[in-house]
Structure formats: C-alpha cells, structure tokens
C-alpha cells in the first residue's frame, strides 16, 4: 500500500522538513508508491517531487482551500485518506504539519504519533521513536491503525524551490466535500517579518539568564551579538522577570535554536533551557558556578561574572579589529 506525505510550500518554496518527511515516507513504502498531497493549486512541484521518488501528486482543490485554515486542510486530508486508504501519512513535525495532522487524525478518529525521530514498518504495525521534552527523552511506541499517521522532527537542511516543467508525475485533483458553513478559522491578516538576523536562524546567539540580573545588564550582550553578527536570546528567568520579551526566550516553551555558536551568559542550564539550545554546534558557557549544568555540558567554559567577562571579550574583539585595520588600539 502506498504512503502519503504532505508538502507544505510558501510560494513554491518547499521547506527542508517536508523533503525529510518525504524521504521517510519512501523508506516506509518499501517499494510501494509514495504519493504527495498539496493544498491549493500546484505551484510546479512536479520535478522536485518526481526527483524524490513521488509517483502521484494529489492536489486538493476547493474554493475554501485558499489561505491556510487548520480545520479545512485537516478535513480535506481526512476525506482524501478515507477515499484513498493509504498505509500511512508522514508529514513534517512543523507547527503547521502537526496541526494539519492533528485535525485530520481527530476527524478520521485515527491515532497520530507526532515528532518521531525513527519509524520502521513492521507487519501489522509501525514501530517508532518519538522525541519528548524537545528530545531530552525518547519514547518507543507501536502504532496500529488502518492508516498510520506520523510527523517527523525536522532536521537541518536546505529548502528547495519548485521549478515548473514536465516531470512525468501523475497529478490527481481531489475536491473535498465542504459545506459553505463548514466551521473553521479564517486567516484574516498576515504580517511578514522584516529581513535581518532572527533568533531562530542566527549563526551566533548570545543568551543571558539569571546571572545578567536586569534588563540593563543585557547591553553588553547586545554589543557582543552585534559584533558577531548574531542575535540576543535569554532564559525563562529573564522573561518571567520582564528583562526581555518572550520572543527572545530560548527553550522548550520558547524558540529552539541551532546556531554555530551559542554563548550562554549566567544561565544555569535547566532542562527547559537546555532543550532549546542543545542543537548548537558549539556552546560557550560563562558562569560563576563551575558546576552549573550549562557549564558541564558546554564545549567551552569561562568561570566568572558575566558583567566582567562579556565587556572584556567585547573590548578584546575591538582591540584585535583595530590592530587588523592598522589603527592604534585604544588603551585598555
């Protein structure tokens, strides 16, 4: 039996997470067909999908399927699954992927395993491993259902752009049966984020916690982040004390970051925070407590007060830049 996958796209750009889900769908199909589902008109995904082993593209077409709506997308998927009866569906564990799958699962009364890190097809059931608490715990589970629904944790990778043209892909239009008064949420406003370094995509994140002590205390961290072309983050303590907005919070209930370098200033490294930054390639911890979990898990550590260490690092970067530029360095 075939395995379906959902392709989210933003103006024809397919996120890496969806291609990763597609790869796993291919493994689970084990020789059977992999079929993709796209909502709204096909922006020319054919060649990208065909190159990744997809044989059929189901295009969900309905006058209500325009902007994203969780209930409409979920109901449409549920109806498609009822008609096509695939062995399973693999979607990306993105906010939207999890939301569509939860809606479809609820409406189909099927079980759903979200945020899987491994899935194998065994006779009768899929054996899987899910990430809990941002990946700090792993849950092994068995999924038994007529159609098995899973989402997979996104990994690092590059987005792919659609390229219109012949692909040999079979395209099938699916028109869901949606009443005009179908209960749903309507997207009424969308504001695009301006360009610039964001916490989620920054190469360097300079983050502060309890040890920073106040909102003013973040000034040297801002300066260091500026010098390194990075973004400023913070721990939950900094947010609850009102030192930083919640949008700066790194952690399980904030943003999960995976920069080249994460500089943790005065952050003890509780579980809640650790799961937000453990994806960083390198971690530098600055803390007065050499036994703090953040220090013992970091790649590099400095023992000391962030109020002394961070300004000294900023001064040292400036001094070396001045030397490189042939200027006489300012006296320390």
């Amino acid at each position: 039996m075939s395995v379906f996958t959902i392709i989210e796209h933003d103006d024809g750009v397919v996120p890496a997470a969806c291609l990763q889900a597609l790869t796993i769908a291919g493994e689970l199909a084990a020789g059977d067909t992999v079929e993709a589902v796209v909502f709204g008109p096909d922006p020319g995904l054919g060649s990208v999908l065909a190159a990744n082993g997809v044989t059929t593209l189901h295009v969900v077409d309905h006058e209500l399927v325009t902007d994203y709506s969780p209930e409409i997308y979920g109901e449409s998927l549920a109806q498609l699954l009822k008609q096509a009866g695939p062995a399973g569906v693999v979607a990306a564990g993105t906010d939207r992927g999890n939301e569509i799958m939860a809606q479809a699962a609820a409406r189909s009364r099927l079980p759903l395993a979200t945020n899987c890190v491994a899935v194998t097809a065994d006779p009768g059931a899929w054996t899987l491993t899910r990430a809990r608490v941002g990946g700090l715990l792993l849950e092994d589970a068995e999924l038994t259902a007529s159609t098995k629904l899973v989402t997979v944790v996104p990994g690092p990778g590059d987005d792919v752009s659609a390229s219109p043209g012949a692909s040999g892909l079979l395209t099938q239009t699916f028109v869901p049966d949606l009443a005009a008064d179908f209960v749903h949420s309507r997207l009424v406003e969308r504001t695009e984020r301006g360009s610039g370094v964001t916490l989620a995509t920054a190469r360097v994140v300079v983050s502060g916690g309890r040890g920073v002590g106040s909102s003013e205390g973040f000034a040297p961290l801002e300066e260091l982040a500026d010098l390194l072309g990075g973004a400023v983050g913070c721990s939950r303590v900094a947010t609850s004390n009102g030192w930083r907005p919640h949008s700066d919070q790194v952690g399980q209930t904030g943003t999960k970051v995976s920069p080249e370098l994460y500089i943790a200033c005065g952050i003890s490294g509780a579980t809640q925070h650790w799961v937000g930054c453990m994806g960083a390639k390198t971690i530098l911890a600055i803390n007065t407590d050499p036994e703090a979990p953040m220090v013992t898990r970091a790649t590099y550590a400095v023992t000391g007060d962030v109020h002394e260490v961070v300004p000294a690092v900023v001064a040292e970067i400036r001094r070396r830049a001045d030397i490189r530029a042939g200027r006489r360095p300012a006296l320390a």
């Binding site: 390194l228 080249e260 370098l261 390198t282 530098l284 911890a285 050499p290 220090v295 013992t296 898990r297 970091a298 790649t299 590099y300 550590a301 400095v302 023992t303 000391g304 007060d305 002394e308 260490v309 300004p311 000294a312 690092v313 001064a315 040292e316 970067i317 070396r320």
Partner: peptide, 21 residues
C-alpha cells in the same frame, strides 16, 4: 568541557576560540 579561564583575564582565550570558529 574545555575551560578557557576565569574572569576578565579569559577574554584573549575566548576571542581566540571565536576566531577559530
């Protein structure tokens, strides 16, 4: 964990690492 030093005196070692990265 590689300990780079303590206090403000560690700045040189820290920037060495930043340059290396």
């Amino acid at each position: 964990t590689v300990v780079l030093g303590s206090g403000a005196d560690s700045a040189g070692a820290v920037v060495d690492v930043l340059e290396e990265l």
